[in-house]
């Protein structure tokens, strides 16, 4: 165990190291002014990346070729549906939440049907379903300008001593998912399938059921993200999920999860999501132009992944 443990620890620690380095650099540049506020903001925004990152992590861990590209459109659909049903009323909050989750379940099932029944590679299946989902969102939420119910808006923006309440909830969710990954039959099966799908099947694991739950989980978490995000940002918009396509994959990889599958890390997702936000903040503080910002973001992500050692060679 010690060998496996130290190795996985090495992989995720780097996202936190990067996060603190970037935060420190910003604080030094501004002379420490507002550096606590920056952390609060980072926690708020990272929360949403973490929610979808966890789903994406389980998908990626089931092995090469598995990725969920329908996350952004699911966020948009879920937000649009929830906002329209609740129509700004606190009384409809539970129903809106249920509808949002329903969107997630429907998307998850649809994705899996494409992958399993029609045998379309996951990357194509989820990409094409994302067009369908986004079109539904557009058709459904035409001219969407609905405010979220006050209760939802308050909850998603509430803070206790500078720490967003939502962030605390999602830290707990991440902890639970960490236990799910390492200590449950489901998590163990995901890790086994990611290493060798055939061997997993021959070791008595119901591979197809596990893959189904994994795509379902990813879609439901994306829907949850859409619901909370529209409360946080004062309503849903059709392109609100856009930035989460690459972000969800990037935090998984930077967080120490193996792209080759079979090795995953939940804690690293938090570090990586914070790192990504603080990195952009730092470049903004330095007054870098948009072009420089993108170049630096790319380079620094490459650097972090290189230092973290990436994957050990696969046989």
């Amino acid at each position: 165990m010690t060998f496996v443990k130290t190795l996985s620890q090495k992989a995720w620690i780097w996202s936190f190291v990067g996060m603190f380095a970037v935060w420190l650099a910003t604080a030094v540049y501004t002379g420490g002014k507002g550096s606590a506020d920056v952390l609060t903001a980072a926690l708020s925004f990272a929360t949403f990346t973490v929610i979808v990152g966890i789903g994406q992590m389980f998908v990626i861990t089931t092995g090469p070729g598995n990725v969920d590209l329908s996350i952004p459109s699911t966020i948009s659909l879920s937000g649009a549906v929830a906002m329209k049903i609740m129509d700004g009323s606190n009384a409809m909050l539970a129903i809106g939440f249920a509808a949002s989750m329903g969107c997630g379940v429907a998307v998850g099932i649809f994705n899996y049907i494409l992958i399993r029944v029609l045998r379309i590679p996951p990357i194509i299946a989820t990409l094409s379903s994302s067009f369908l989902i986004l079109s539904s969102a557009i058709a459904y939420g035409r001219g969407l300008k609905i405010k979220p119910p006050p209760l939802l808006a308050d909850f998603t923006t509430a803070q206790i001593m500078g720490i967003p309440v939502l962030a605390i909830v999602i830290i707990l969710l991440a902890a639970v998912m960490g236990v799910v990954l390492n200590r449950t039959m489901y998590g163990r099966s995901v890790l086994a399938i990611g290493q060798n799908m055939r061997a997993a099947w021959l070791a008595g694991i119901n591979v197809e059921r596990i893959r189904f739950f994994t795509y379902l989980l990813s879609a439901v978490l994306a829907a949850l993200c859409g619901f909370l995000l529209s409360g946080f940002s004062g309503g849903a918009s059709l392109n609100m999920g856009q930035e989460y396509l690459l972000a969800s994959i990037a935090v998984v990889v930077i967080g120490g999860t193996s792209v080759a599958g079979g090795k995953a890390n939940v804690a690293g997702i938090w570090g990586a999501a914070m790192f990504m936000f603080l990195l952009v903040t730092m470049l903004n503080t330095f007054g870098a132009s948009a072009g420089i910002r993108l170049i630096m973001t790319g380079l620094i992500i490459v650097a972090v992944i290189t230092i973290a050692g990436g994957d050990e060679p696969q046989r």
Binding site: M185, L191, A192, N196, A199, L202
Partner: peptide, 26 residues
Amino acid sequence: LVAGDRQTDGVFHLWSISRNVGVRSL
């Protein structure tokens, strides 16, 4: 099933020996 072609059908190469033994009995 006891695999004979252990690389393709048997071994989980990222796992410890214990985990490899226990996977069928979780």
